[in-house]
Write a protein that binds this DNA or RNA. Structure first.
Lengths: 227, 227
DNA sequence: CATTAAGTGGAAAATAAATTCAACTTGGAA
DNA sequence: TTCCAAGTTGAATTTATTTTCCACTTAATG
């Protein structure tokens, strides 16, 4: 009992700061290696996608496997370190888009910015679209962005810029669709996705979407559900 | 010289039938197992996709791995046995579509038929769209179908049913796009691809495709190239 | 500098799938 | 019936990757 109390007291003493930032700073050589591994992993994932092997990363960086595992005990740690900034950037795009008066212009702009980032890194695309490896950060990002997009779509419908019946799931589908062309054509036609985007957006604008709308939960499954 | 002549003579004698059907007929139990493995593999691939492990197939069929390997020494053999009929069916669709007077209606119908088949089996979809595991039969199928589609598109453009600048690559992109939504939503929204198809087709019809057209070879890469 | 906690490398163990193969069945021809 | 080529099985091997671990460095502190 007193023991428990003492522990709680202790906990409160060095809590807040240390809970979110318990990191004892790295030794200089370790920090150098960490950065090296991150740069290497980022480059490999930009071209190969998220599931480059730890061994490949370590070899390309010139370090041992042990270093890799000590710094990033599992893939989540690595993905967080690599991509959380990108994800924040994308959230920022959604927020900026939501500010716009012209809802449809906002939607186009948001999607385009997001896809530009995905085009620069296959890894980011897989993270933002492939639901299987999604980190907690990605899930939170989608949770944050979905309402903003929903609002933009509702406004665009009201403004007559989108057909009645258009839903956030349709917008997500467009994102997935254009991304799939990007993935399929990387290497031999790195700009083909722009044409696919043109097509998909024109479709969203002109399609008859009056049929029964997709279930509300579809968008979450599409983005958040594990494989 | 005479030798060569004799060989050719021989070849003509027992050619056609034996070249395509050199198979010494299987023992009854072996044939039963073969069918069982094919049914099992088909079902697993319908839900899981093409890369179910040989072990899973053998286990589900209740046979040993050895049987699997004896009958289908490599994956190509298995894929051919499983899917060549489907592929022929799809080629048939393209040919029928090419007959139609209304080119645009033919294109829609062709794509829809193909996607219906893909919807029934994830494996077929991966085979027809993912270029990585494509069998020789799939490559030949695309080689056969591409000119038919190209002709339909040209006619649809002439008839004002498609915007100037629309290419076979755009049609392939639509196929890939809708397929990606199908793959992403299998299980929780098995009909979502229809909505994606509505969107993508409306886009093809209404997009401004006057920009520089994708390179002629893009469609081959998209469908035929190895990963 | 001496000390040592932190860091490193890389070989070895664990995992998992693909593939082989030798010992054992069995269908069906004679 | 007998026989054996064809067929089967599943354990063993290979291949590929992930993960652990410990003997060996090294940065940084007093």
């Amino acid at each position: 009992m007193e023991n428990k109390f003492n522990l709680e007291f202790f906990f409160h003493l060095d809590s807040v700061d240390h809970v979110t930032d318990p990191a004892p700073p790295l030794r200089r050589d370790a920090e150098r290696n960490r950065q090296l591994l991150l740069r290497t992993a980022y480059e490999l994932m930009a071209t190969e996608g998220l599931d480059v092997s730890y061994e490949d990363i370590a070899r390309a960086a010139g370090t041992g496997m042990g270093t890799m595992y000590r710094r990033f005990p599992d893939r989540q740690d690595l993905l967080n370190a690599l991509f959380n900034d990108h994800i924040d950037t994308v959230i920022g795009f959604a927020e900026q888009a939501a500010q716009r008066d012209d809802a449809w212009a906002g939607l186009i702009w948001f999607l385009e910015q997001q896809l530009e980032i995905e085009a620069r890194s296959r890894g980011v695309g897989e993270l933002l679209r492939s639901r299987s490896q999604a980190t907690a950060a990605v899930q939170r990002a989608h949770d944050r962005m979905t309402p903003l997009v929903a609002e933009l779509i509702a406004r665009a419908v009201r403004a007559g810029q989108l057909p009645a019946g258009a839903t956030p799931a349709d917008f997500a589908a467009v994102h997935v669709m254009v991304g799939s062309v990007m993935d399929a054509s990387r290497g031999f036609a790195p700009q083909l996705w722009r044409r696919a985007l043109t097509i998909a957006l024109a479709g969203l604008r002109h399609a008859d979407l009056s049929g029964d709308p997709p279930d509300e939960t579809v968008i979450d499954h599409l983005y958040n559900e594990k494989k």
